[in-house]
Simulated assay, not measured.
Amino acid sequence: MNDEITIYQKPTCSKCRGTLAILDDSGQDYKSVNYYETPLSVDKLRELIKKLGLSARDVLRKDESAARNLDLSTISEDALIQRMVDNPDLMQRPIVVRGDKARICRPPENVRDLL
């Protein structure tokens, strides 16, 4: 694979730090995006979800207090994506992308699929 590697992460997240360590050890160049400082757009999050091959519900951190208040039986994919853009704590992390493939790196070793 020759495509650029990008990690979407939160610096205080232990899984993100673990994934970054694996990327550092790999010796490959990558771009790191703290999506709290550089928020994702709706279109960007939709693109990431497509590359993951998942639904927005699959990317939702269901244990977050803000997620417990959502009625997942009635909320649309678009509305859920908008909620995640508005509140990044609702997104699983980290997400690593290489070309048209992406992985949620929980556990961090999932990043090896992209190296």
Rank of each mutant, 00 (worst) to 15 (best):
Met1Tyr: 15
Asp3Ile: 08
Ile5Lys: 09
Ile5Pro: 08
Ile7Thr: 12
Gln9Phe: 02
Lys10Val: 12
Pro11Cys: 07
Pro11Arg: 02
Thr12Lys: 04
Cys13Ile: 08
Cys16Ala: 03
Gly18Met: 02
Thr19Leu: 08
Leu20Asp: 00
Ala21Met: 04
Ile22Glu: 07
Leu23Asn: 02
Asp24Arg: 07
Asp24Thr: 02
Asp25Arg: 10
Asp25Ile: 06
Gly27Ser: 04
Lys31Ser: 00
Asn34Val: 10
Asn34Pro: 11
Asn34Ser: 15
Tyr35Cys: 13
Tyr35Glu: 13
Tyr36Asp: 13
Tyr36Thr: 14
Thr38Asp: 12
Pro39Thr: 06
Leu45Asp: 04
Leu45Glu: 00
Glu47Val: 10
Glu47Arg: 14
Glu47His: 13
Leu48Trp: 05
Leu48Tyr: 10
Ile49Leu: 00
Lys50Cys: 11
Lys51Asp: 09
Lys51Pro: 05
Leu52Gln: 11
Leu52Val: 09
Gly53Thr: 01
Leu54Ser: 13
Ser55Pro: 03
Ser55Asp: 04
Ser55Lys: 10
Ala56Gly: 01
Arg57Ile: 14
Asp58Cys: 06
Asp58Gly: 08
Leu60Asn: 12
Lys62Asp: 09
Asp63Trp: 03
Glu64Asp: 00
Ala66His: 09
Asp71His: 05
Leu72Met: 14
Ser73Leu: 11
Ser73Lys: 13
Thr74Asn: 01
Ile75Gly: 01
Ser76Thr: 15
Ala79Leu: 00
Ala79Cys: 04
Ala79Val: 08
Leu80Lys: 04
Ile81Phe: 03
Gln82Met: 14
Gln82Ala: 12
Arg83Trp: 00
Arg83Ile: 01
Arg83Asn: 02
Met84Lys: 07
Val85His: 08
Asn87Leu: 13
Asn87Asp: 14
Asp89Ile: 15
Leu90Phe: 09
Val97Asn: 08
Gly99Val: 15
Gly99Asp: 15
Gly99His: 15
Asp100Ser: 15
Asp100His: 09
Lys101Gln: 15
Lys101Asp: 14
Arg103Asp: 05
Pro107Phe: 03
Val111Trp: 07
Arg112Met: 06
Arg112Leu: 04
Arg112Phe: 01
Asp113Tyr: 11
Asp113Lys: 13
Leu115Gly: 10
